[in-house]
Design a protein around this nucleic acid. Structure first.
Lengths: 201, 201
DNA sequence: TAAATTAACGAACGGTCGTTCGGTTGACTA
DNA sequence: TAGTCAACCGAACGACCGTTCGTTAATTTA
């Protein structure tokens, strides 16, 4: 009866999105059939269509839920009155922690939105765009604070993508046994991004 | 009649692998049908099966060809008698240049090998493993040369994955107009990885 | 208690999937 | 000149795809 639990005792749409994301992360969107999803969610094939109108909409909902969560964390971070380097550190910690806690959804979210109709992919594009914009703002402010230089937008943009690359590649290699928890990974990414790989500890 | 040309005048299997990779990079493996591949390669559906025995084998061949090329570049790099930082710089330049010149194949290669049978995925796993091993060796040697410290394997491993993350995320954002050519991107990744984001020029 | 809404189901639809089969070219070889 | 073989094709196979339909319990609302 608890509202939050460590083990997922979700119900309804949230449970379906979670279990669908887990399977789609393994098999891919096209590789996962509605019959597969019916099985892992413990429902009938036709029963799934009570929660969404099409398989494509299910994919959209998974993406929308994830990007909205990420964006809210960044918006909250921008409201805090902290130094540029603590803001950058917060961005990285937020992103990496969310990433490791939601590896399945993130694998889907980072694989593009080619399969969606124009309206839906535009909504996702706006979410991603604002999330990226906030990230570039944080990176640019940090670089300006460290060096006193106002770098052109394309330089800041490229640096930001390198940072997102380090973070988004996590699903390709991360294992908690050998690489530590989210906090440790986030700290390593922060150190590497700000001062290079030889600043280990 | 030239053996190498800027425009692709390939024939046979190489041409099929190239055009298939291009389409699969857009639509995904499961999202691309054999009929789609027949159309873009200018062949009949059944005619494709002259070159491979199954759609899965086609995916394997695309992956094998790419990873073998990457691995050969790294092996060649290890034979050269150069300093650790020039070796690291060479690794990054090789990888980034190959990545940008083969964006389609790389998109497929970085999306895993879940759809392949055990034997094939094991062959690819060995190729990836050796490529990653050489990368970690180069990174570890560089860090040791810079700091005089022998870092534990899991630290080096994690740092290497951050580097590969910066490089492999390229397909998510790269556009030659605003981000420069492969050489410029490689130089930025090298600077960022070795000395941090504030070392821009 | 009656009505309305939610959540679920089995069965079936037309279409597309990967693959196979039997055959036909045309260039090279013995 | 007969034989071989790589290259290629149209047609069809059974399986699976996403989706829809009509229906039925269970729960909530009036």
């Amino acid at each position: 009866m608890s509202e939050l639990a460590l083990d997922k005792h979700l119900s309804g749409l949230d449970e379906i999105l979670d279990k669908s994301a887990r399977l789609m992360a393994q098999l891919g969107y096209h590789g996962t059939s509605m019959r597969d999803l019916a099985q892992v969610t413990g429902r009938s094939l036709s029963g799934l269509y009570h929660y969404f109108n099409s398989k494509e909409e299910l994919l959209f909902l998974i993406n929308q839920r994830g990007f909205t969560s990420l964006l809210e964390m960044s918006r909250h971070l921008m409201l805090q009155d902290i130094s540029p380097d603590r803001r950058l550190s917060g961005l990285i910690t937020n992103h990496v922690t969310y990433f490791i806690d939601h590896l399945n959804e993130m694998r889907i979210m980072t694989s593009g939105s080619q399969e969606m109709n124009d309206q839906r992919s535009q909504i996702l594009w706006q979410l991603k765009e604002e999330y990226a914009r906030l990230g570039q703002q944080i990176v640019g402010t940090y670089m300006r604070a460290e060096t006193g230089i106002d770098y052109p937008a394309n330089i800041i943009s490229r640096k930001s993508f390198l940072l997102y690359g380090m973070m988004n590649w996590i699903f390709g290699w991360y294992s908690p046994q050998s690489h530590g928890d989210a906090t440790e990974v986030a700290a390593d990414i922060f150190r590497t991004f700000t001062h290079g790989c030889t600043t280990v500890n």
